[in-house]
Amino acid sequence: TKKDTKLYCICKTPYDESKFYIGCDRCQNWYHGRCVGILQSEAELIDEYVCPQCQST
């Protein structure tokens, strides 16, 4: 049987260590910077990140 692979981001793909991720400070989920429109250089300046799903609630 195929091992359950945890899926990340709004694009629902397995973790890829070569890509940049940003963690939501509300739901603790991880998102590709590219998918949520945040560059790694911008993320370093953000104190708290809230993902699109949490922003809409």
Rank of each mutant, 00 (worst) to 15 (best):
24 C>H: 00
4 D>Q: 09
50 V>C: 06
8 Y>W: 08
35 C>L: 01
26 R>E: 10
57 T>W: 06
45 L>T: 12
19 K>L: 11
18 S>H: 10
19 K>P: 03
15 Y>S: 03
48 E>P: 15
10 I>F: 05
42 E>G: 05
3 K>E: 14
28 Q>S: 14
43 A>H: 14
39 L>P: 15
30 W>Y: 15
41 S>Q: 11
13 T>H: 03
17 E>P: 08
11 C>V: 00
37 G>T: 03
15 Y>F: 13
27 C>K: 01
51 C>M: 02
47 D>M: 09
28 Q>M: 10
54 C>V: 00
52 P>C: 07
11 C>S: 00
7 L>E: 14
16 D>W: 02
53 Q>L: 12
56 S>F: 11
33 G>F: 07
34 R>T: 11
15 Y>N: 03
50 V>T: 14
21 Y>L: 06
45 L>Q: 15
4 D>V: 07
30 W>I: 12
23 G>N: 09
37 G>L: 04
17 E>I: 08
28 Q>F: 07
33 G>P: 15
24 C>P: 03
40 Q>V: 07
32 H>N: 01
1 T>M: 09
29 N>C: 05
22 I>C: 01
4 D>E: 13
9 C>Q: 01
12 K>P: 01
5 T>L: 10
50 V>S: 08
11 C>I: 00
12 K>T: 10
14 P>E: 08
38 I>V: 10
25 D>G: 12
13 T>E: 07
18 S>N: 07
21 Y>R: 08
18 S>T: 07
31 Y>F: 14
18 S>P: 02
34 R>S: 14
48 E>S: 14
9 C>H: 01
11 C>P: 02
6 K>R: 10
3 K>F: 12
25 D>E: 15
56 S>P: 14
52 P>M: 09
53 Q>E: 13
22 I>A: 03
14 P>T: 07
18 S>I: 00
8 Y>G: 14
31 Y>V: 05
3 K>I: 12
55 Q>K: 14
45 L>E: 11
11 C>K: 01
8 Y>A: 15
38 I>H: 05
46 I>F: 08
40 Q>W: 04
49 Y>Q: 03
50 V>N: 07
51 C>R: 02
52 P>W: 05
40 Q>M: 06
43 A>E: 06
25 D>T: 15
39 L>E: 15
48 E>C: 13
31 Y>W: 03
